[in-house]
Design a protein around this nucleic acid. Structure first.
Lengths: 184, 184
DNA sequence: ACCTGAACACCGTTCAAGT
DNA sequence: ACCTGAACACCGTTCAAGT
């Protein structure tokens, strides 16, 4: 696993960037792209891909790093402009929407690979949820003592709704159920 | 896809049973067993496995058919002996426990392969949940108008808790959250 | 220091050939 | 009617050989 920027030889950095770019492009349409295929499209040897990314999840995280950061950065402005529970609902919706398009990231976040992911994406997302819950606790809208991992696990239901016309309604119903469960 | 019992040639039935038995055995310890490996251990050609089971999910369903039936059959006695919400909690716990050991079945139940599964396992499980919710509705303990698929999707959180010592506590916390969300 | 790409040990799936 | 098992088109991953 090479770091994103620091101290990479020029060709190494170029390869790394190409891999991420190709992967991002490929993942936009479907989740099942082989790492070999990504390497080939990026014009690098498969070993090069593995030199930069220890496994599929590591590549996923890198591909979506900025999107996750943008999402997490939304928490503060949302909390500034809305009551905690409203901000929470809005952010949860944004998270669910993001996870539905970003193939495999949701599982990487909730899944057993949590360790690898920790500092990169899991951490920030957990931090975002924590901030929302704390704000709700402070105003008494959210029941105190909630575990962030519990909430994250529940939220998984949101990005597992089958896609389609009825999916939106189911998403809204689930959101209500989840909010009810965490409300004071 | 051959049916389980009817009108199978003797050797065909023998092969089918062997495959299911070997698969059940293998799945007891781990979820990642290849279909080829199952066929080999069962002493049949890989084509034979595919003749009997169109895909992995079909085999999974068959392997766990009886366990699912037993689970579903528990609903009536539970409802007879406990208040609806208590019965619901107990059955949800049993379901979660079953899904944690029965590798891959949970995803097959909630996942996108829902169609294939419908009549076999998804149907009965949904029926069981429906019965529990209806009983709770009748006594006013459960809020009316709940969607079974919504509840099933929420329950998914229960069998996604990472295994380990803290897993039990997280399971209990999640159960409370879910019950709170469906209570009147 | 980094890259290449053949090679390894697998997958799931198919299908000609057999009985 | 059913079975076999080689064969196909892939996987993820490794590692000698190169620059």
């Amino acid at each position: 696993m090479t770091p994103p920027d620091q101290a990479l030889r020029a060709d190494a950095k170029r390869n790394r960037d190409r891999i991420v770019q190709v992967a991002r492009e490929a993942l936009r349409t479907t989740g099942d792209v082989s790492l070999n295929a990504i390497a080939k499209t990026a014009g690098v040897g498969s070993g090069t891909l593995y030199r930069h990314f220890a496994n599929r999840d590591a590549l996923l995280i890198e591909v979506y790093r900025e999107e996750i950061r943008d999402l997490v950065d939304q928490v503060a402005p949302l909390l500034a402009e809305h009551p905690p529970l409203v901000a929470t609902r809005m952010w949860f919706e944004a998270l669910a929407e993001a996870m539905k398009t970003k193939q495999g990231l949701g599982d990487a976040l909730t899944g057993s690979t949590k360790q690898t992911v920790t500092s990169e994406s899991y951490g920030p997302v957990v931090g975002a949820i924590r901030a929302l819950l704390d704000a709700g606790e402070a105003t008494g809208e959210v029941r105190p003592g909630l575990d962030v991992d519990d909430v994250l696990l529940l939220l998984g239901a949101l990005w597992r709704v089958p896609p389609g016309a009825e999916g939106d309604e189911q998403g809204e119903r689930l959101m209500s159920l989840i909010l009810r469960s965490i409300a004071a």
